[in-house]
Design a protein around this nucleic acid. Structure first.
Lengths: 343, 343
DNA sequence: CGCGCCACCTAAACCGGTATAGATTCGCCT
DNA sequence: AGGCGAATCTATACCGGTTTAGGTGGCGCG
């Protein structure tokens, strides 16, 4: 009756070897004859031995877990469809590797810093994912101080050496603008995300660049915090201006959906009176009416690749950054030619 | 220069006591004189000592972490706004307690079971949250076998002894039906969730009960998996029927939004031609047009209470179930009187 | 034949805490 | 004065692995 779960000592005794040798066999280190190794592993299998994670952690100082710190106010967290999908991707890799994901959701910068410190200090994780990169991100210094391996989601600014996994969303925004221009739009607005975040800033400058390249006015931009609420406000502001845009490029889907709501509330018909594009290709964006033209990335794949990259970084001490396929424009029903009235 | 982080031995040596005593002082156990205790804690503070989590885990067999296993296909996970908010609530409690949340996202039942086994076997967590309760849920037996403390989200069926934290969503559905009836609706449909899930089943039967109590036909119900996609399909089916309903009660917000999209696509005006209610009170539901009448729960609070309950269960070996304030109806613009044509 | 070397394996220290058994001190009681 | 018990503290085993320092035996080679 195996009441207690077997330990390495049980395995050693049963196999008639020392426990050190069992450890060698387990981690296939040299110095164990093939026959002995097989015998040990067989015995371990028979006994149903699974080495204790805590004991391993204590002696190796690794936790076999990765960390993800998300900084979002509780009210806003649900609005962002990125994380659940990203996490699903991460998990699909981690479970195969017998590792776990430690999640930390914090409301503000102070708590965020403390969270990284605790995660590292308690040896809870062997590495972390860095999301929502910001300009002059304090976290880079912190991670260096803590000697905590990290993979960035998105391109860190120049001078930062940590590996990253990114998609080129520039291309997607440019494609959206090109699409709208080809439909005949000339006054195009942009409801941008948080300019302090790298991706917010990058999408915004992609928009500006694309407009300028086309010889159009790139100044119809309103910055937000990516929330549906501010997306709605921004839309109202844009549409209330003297010469409102005939199309609006939103920096994410929830804001686009909120913008669509505002337009409809104002009695505008989308896309006849106003064209709208989203960003992210969330599930729900295909089911609003009209279905949103949006720019799709693949957050699940992003999670998978980021997890593999971080594991490689931890194992090898270095890892190559990865560029995922660029975000692609998915044309649906929320974009069309501008109204005849507007030139 | 403290290169190495201090250990209990350093503290003991500096304070001039044995390390056992330091351990006692730390966990305020009896047998330490007040002065000595203070001196030890002072020294610990000066040295910046933080007890090693791995070492503690090894000797106490507790991990100071809680687990959450989410079973969702990767494609669907983003659609569910519950989890991010719930997790934010859990975290707000855990960070204060110096505990972490280990998240596991799995695609199917097999992986789910394995996940619980691994979490328990590796001693990764001291307890778990049980979400998406199902009828004859196999997890109850599994958790008993693993001797893993758990708190259920929602009411487990009879005969199950584990503590739970729940909101009475019956009340919310009933309120929605009452609201629609008071507006004059007589043919009301219901796009239900997964009947294998407890909350899906309960909302459905609440609907049926409320309708029957009002003397109305409770049979206009279509079951779905809670996804926007199936919500859209169900709406099309209901509206395409011989005598379509004048109002539809959806079992969650994403389906309601998808249903709204379908209605608009069919040229119906909401709420003049069709009234719609959602469920969950997600952020985005207030920004679609018309803003959704919905039933609000408070998933953040739910997370907080669930976390506290699970911690109490782990600490004391037992905990009281908690009933949260019932879900409340939030009347917005998507509900109104039925069209005159329909009696 | 004796030496060195390599392959294989053991013994024991170690990671940093917790827990238990026993030592010491001191006050109090008879 | 002697003894008992409570309070306080020390020494040490222990949790279950990893890792290092040695030890043994067999073989090739001069």
């Amino acid at each position: 009756m195996a009441l207690r779960k077997p330990t390495i000592t049980d395995v050693a005794r049963t196999a008639g070897v020392s426990k050190g040798l069992v450890s060698f066999a387990l981690n296939d280190k040299p110095g164990v004859s093939p026959e002995t190794r097989k015998r040990i592993l067989d015995v371990a299998g028979d006994l149903g031995w699974r080495p204790s994670l805590s004991a391993r952690s204590l002696s190796t100082k690794t936790s076999f877990a990765l960390g993800l710190v998300i900084r979002r106010k509780a009210e806003v967290i649900s609005a962002d469809p990125f994380f659940p999908a990203f996490i699903a991707g991460v998990e699909s890799v981690l479970t195969e590797e017998g590792r776990a994901l430690v999640l930390s959701v914090v409301p503000d910068a102070t708590a965020e810093m403390k969270s990284y410190r605790t995660l590292a200090g308690d040896n809870r994780v062997d590495g972390v994912f860095l999301t929502d990169l910001r300009r002059n991100d304090e976290r880079f210094d912190l991670l260096a101080e803590l000697a905590l391996p990290a993979v960035a989601l998105g391109r860190p600014g120049p001078g930062v050496e940590i590996p990253s996994v990114q998609v080129d969303d520039t291309h997607g925004i440019a494609a959206a603008v090109a699409h709208l221009i080809s439909l005949g739009h000339r006054r195009i607005g942009h409801v941008a995300g948080d300019p302090h975040m790298m991706h917010g800033g990058r999408r915004r400058s992609s928009f500006t660049d694309a407009m300028r390249d086309a010889g159009l006015d790139p100044s119809l931009v309103i910055e937000t915090d990516f929330s549906a609420s501010q997306g709605a406000d921004a839309t109202r502001t844009l549409l209330g201006a003297g010469a409102p845009p005939t199309a609006i490029v939103f920096a994410n889907d929830p804001m686009a959906i909120a913008g669509l709501g505002v337009a409809q509330q104002l009695g505008l018909h989308v896309p006849d009176d106003l064209s709208i594009t989203g960003f992210d290709g969330t599930d729900i964006s295909g089911y609003v009416y009209p279905a949103l033209t949006t720019i799709t990335s693949d957050p699940v794949e992003w999670g998978r690749v980021a997890a593999r990259t971080l594991l490689a970084l931890i194992a090898d001490g270095s890892a190559e950054s990865v560029e995922l396929p660029p975000a692609a424009l998915l044309v649906r029903a929320s974009t069309g030619p501008p109204p005849p009235a507007a030139p």
